[in-house]
């Protein structure tokens, strides 16, 4: 059974996460204790090149690269599917694995070709 080893791995990861958190928090506490404290009306105002900020930053933010995120989303998952396959690659298959991978990547590349053709990757100057 693999569980025991996985659990050991998990112990490592957990302990390191915990250690990282402690390590990150402790200087913050030290800083809180010995750090200076300033006064001033605009001390905690949002920085915007010295001017009072106009409006909040939490607005609807038109992300021009949103479409990239969507393509990435599907693409990334596709690529991740290749990992288990790569582990078994060339282990007692003749060319079947090669062909399958080529087909898989071929289908995958169609997405890029399509996006490219449709001009997803060209940013227009807007007026």
């Amino acid at each position: 059974m693999m569980t025991a080893q996985a659990l050991h791995d998990f112990v490592y990861v957990g302990v390191f996460l915990l250690a990282a958190a402690l390590f990150a928090v402790s200087p913050l506490i030290a800083s809180w204790l010995i750090g200076g404290r300033s006064v001033g009306v605009k001390r905690a105002e949002t920085y915007e090149s010295g001017m009072p900020a106009i409006g909040s930053a939490w607005i609807q933010f038109s992300v021009a690269y949103y479409i990239y995120a969507l393509i990435f989303l599907a693409f990334d998952v596709d690529v991740l599917f290749l990992f288990p396959v790569a582990l078994a690659y060339d282990k007692g298959f003749f060319v079947r694995d090669f062909v399958e991978i080529v087909i898989f990547i071929g289908i995958l590349s169609l997405a890029i070709v399509y996006a490219w053709r449709k001009g997803v990757f060209t940013w227009q100057k807007r007026r």
């Binding site: 800083s31 010995i34 750090g35 200076g36 001390r43 905690a44 105002e45 949002t46």
Partner: peptide, 26 residues
């Protein structure tokens, strides 16, 4: 840097603002 003041901007989301530097280190 340890001896510097930690400023939390007034209009920030305080909880997340404080959490992020710790989370980046995890």
């Amino acid at each position: 840097l340890v001896g510097k003041e930690l400023i939390t901007p007034r209009h920030a989301d305080r909880k997340l603002f404080m959490l992020a530097p710790i989370a980046v280190f995890l």
